[in-house]
Write a protein that binds this DNA or RNA. Sequence first.
DNA 1: AGCGTACGTGTACGACGTACACTTGTCAAA
DNA 2: TTTGACAAGTGTACGTCGTACACGTACGCT
Lengths: 226, 226
Amino acid sequence: MTTELDVGAQTRVPLSRERVLRTAVALADRGGIESLSMRKLAQALDVVPMALYRHVANKDELLSGLVDVVVGEIDPPRSDTDWKTAIRERILSARRALLRHPWASRVMESRTTPTPVVLGYMDSMIGLFRSGGFSLDLTHHALHAMGSRMFGFTQELFNETTNVDPGAEAEMWGAMAEVYPYIYEIFATISHDDRSIVGAGCDDQFEFEFALDLMLDGIERLKDRS
Amino acid sequence: MTTELDVGAQTRVPLSRERVLRTAVALADRGGIESLSMRKLAQALDVVPMALYRHVANKDELLSGLVDVVVGEIDPPRSDTDWKTAIRERILSARRALLRHPWASRVMESRTTPTPVVLGYMDSMIGLFRSGGFSLDLTHHALHAMGSRMFGFTQELFNETTNVDPGAEAEMWGAMAEVYPYIYEIFATISHDDRSIVGAGCDDQFEFEFALDLMLDGIERLKDRS
DNA sequence: AGCGTACGTGTACGACGTACACTTGTCAAA
DNA sequence: TTTGACAAGTGTACGTCGTACACGTACGCT
């Protein structure tokens, strides 16, 4: 009897913070962050909801754990180049991590205090500027200027791709041309020379790097002038 | 009897989308967005929760209404200057509106599709670039590069001012100096020459304008080169 | 053999958004 | 003056959520 139970207990993988976080990430990856509730997470782990609270203080702390997982996926900086390409490549690595977990940027924004992991990331980021020859002040301003781009995302407003049917879309375009002529003009060129699909999005990667380089170039110029 | 009821009914101001939105803004202004629920909003209006649904489709649409209110507070662009100062001043006006309603940036980020009001704002913003002589492409990239700054906010990570007691803070600083030397270094200079208070924040307005001008200058340079 | 300790369970509560059926109050036409 | 349609507010109810709190249970130590 006891042996049976023991075998049963051994079969069942025990819970752990690690396992909770990993499953939560998986759940959020497919289904979005809004579909991640303590109850569903518990269900996915085949456990009663309250069991989670032995490994995670509450939902908020769980979310912080999730951003730690994602930030942990960012590659460490190269040490064999100049500051600019080191920073650039690291940020692009951060971006890759965030693209793997589309919910992560939203969760990061919702955090109210940084975790040690996030602080570590920022610290090493600052280190790249400092050892690149930046003054304390300029580093500080540069950090602020980069904002969330430092974590690989730029608050794209309304980037959810809500696909409506092509019929209604064509109609919407007619209306847009009159009411929002400038927006129309831009959208028209995008979908014109990118692909022939109406409403095709922009090349996000290009836009990200464009903005990133604009910032880095600006910062570099300020540095050289001081 | 009927007259009595009539008088009572006249005393009670009738609900309206306008009034619902205004009260919601007020409620969010004091108490933060997370303290805004349909039930509390109804209570503030002295009405049963379901009554709101005659004037607002659901909570999501209510939130969209809120951002419309805030965007509506942004001044129209000046037409008597060059593109750069027109854009600059308009964005600073947007920032002022957002500072009046600290919850607004978070709500804007959470919106999945732009409202007509927001589209109108963006359209007129694009207009400023276009009539300033920008090409379609450059305007497009510039828009992306500005990102949320165009609406007067820059995703400040962890900007909630969670004030801990000074005792624990001093201790934290000792630990930080070792683990996060670069962060420590920067924080040390900030609180050193700004004010003598430990942990005093940065000058957010300065940082915002710094980043804004960095972008605008960069964009201007790109324009002149084309 | 017994016992403390770490881990999972069960039940319960209050808050939330909102569906759906209802009353009520108002004003136009008969 | 009655009527009756229509809009505005009400009441009740359901499912979902986070989580407090008390309880079982199994394992490692003595």
